[in-house]
Design a protein around this nucleic acid. Sequence first.
DNA 1: GCCGTTTTCGGCCCGACTGTTTTCAGTCG
Length: 559
Amino acid sequence: MSMDNREIARMLDETADILEILGENPFKVRAYRKAASNINRLETDLREIWAQGRLGELPGVGKAIRAKLEEIMTTGDLRYYRELQKKVPPGVTEMLAIPGLGPKTIGSIYTQTGIDSLEKLYQAARDKKLRELPGIGAKTEYNVKKGIEMLRSLGETVTLGTALPLAEEFKDYLKGYDYVEAVEIVGSIRRGKPLVGDIDLLVASNSENLVREAVKRFRRLREIGKESQGYIAGKLGLGVDFEVIIVSPSDFCLAVMLATGSRGHREKLVQEMEGLDVSGASTEADVYGLLSMQFIPPELREDRDEIEQARQHCLPELVKLGDLRGDLHIHTSWSDGASSLEEMVAAARRLGYSYMAVTEHSRSLSVSRGLDEERLMNQVRAIQEINRSLDDFTVLTGIEVDILKDGRLDLPDEILEQLDVVIASVHSHFRLSRQEQTERIISAIKNEHVDIIGHLTGRLLLRRPGYEVDVEAIIEQARKFRTALEINSHPDRLDISEEVARLARDAGVKVAINSDAHHHADMSLVTYGVLDARRGWLRKEDVINTLETGELLAYLRNK
DNA sequence: GCCGTTTTCGGCCCGACTGTTTTCAGTCG
């Protein structure tokens, strides 16, 4: 079987997981993780790089990993990885997802008890057996139980960041056949939900048998599941389920609409359609038109009040990717970014931006090589130097300053006031009480130099819930002090969430859609942030980085 | 396991918190 970059990266990452549980040299573990993350971000197919004999040129790929990549290229598998899996079964590495439980503890549990699945671990925790092991007490046992319950509640979902690129590749593949008249991604992916259960594709074709055969030849296919007339389901690489529904071209438009959902939205539509002949409609807009409604963008079809608003023709005009004029949250190799300042500027210009703000971590975040005053001022001078050589692009100075435990900021006001953009973010003390956490963030909001609050809740999808904060109180203060909230676009974060985004909008609080890129390739992740914003009903005027350079600078100065 | 205009060997990201202990290992960002 052939694996794509992301599957190969996944295999290296899982190798790192196992090595970590086995107690291997942490630097070796990190080497595998680094190689995996670099491969994940490649824009070129690894196979192509291999064909050119250039695998060794990839950063983080030395002699040993190159040999493993070559084995994957030629055999489609990796013996080293299979051998490691025999020592540490997949059910054991899954335990790494439990918050507070790390490789050492997992290794010790597994070697001492042989527990090799989340299910068995849960039973052991419930039966109070875990606390009998050395180094594990009642508290850890309780956290294990809670952690597994949290993981269960997530169900069998994957992030949009995993599913969407795969869905698009599938769609493009099927579109290439001349007997396929149209393909559309439908279901929750089309609506831009941050977590999705599977990939749903709708195909318009008069040759449903040929389409099913084509599906079976898709290079990302892993297994075929149910199959029937006009329908085929199964599993793709990365373990993502899919369903393909094939309809005749004349039924396509209405079928797309119904299959896009959500269920609640669809049910209301069907009610509206009763007694109405919509068979002549060739676009979704036509159908909504026949129902005397505005076209409802898929991101809004969540059965909130979109149908009512569409009927009254007062749906907002949602912000679009093309509205973004710049990115206000960027890291470079000055702190923990993987790309140089120059590479990030080049990437921003390729995206057609007019500006970007360099916002490194501040000194308290020493893991990330956070900047102290001196290095920050050196960077400001470097940025001024770059700006002198650019006439159609502005690099803004900035910082992602740490909000300390007591709500003070990690850098003094005299420094912050010299910067164009100040983002304040929480990176520590996640377990404060809701009130303490809220007060801490509010004191950052009140600082006159703080322009944006970064990733407000710190949530990581499928990994950890956000910390407890009083969102309403924060929005109220953000409105009062004219501080914007960030939509952190990383598909694992999408923080603030669509719900909070809509609350912010309704309160008149501005939002910044940022990439938080640590690598030049990650600047394009704003597509996910834009989906989040659209699901939060945001318009262009709600988003500060849709402003032109001059307008933005004026806005920041008036803050 | 990777990397090198300080090095082909010896570094590589470190400090704080948590829960377990009773002086510290493990986890996290």
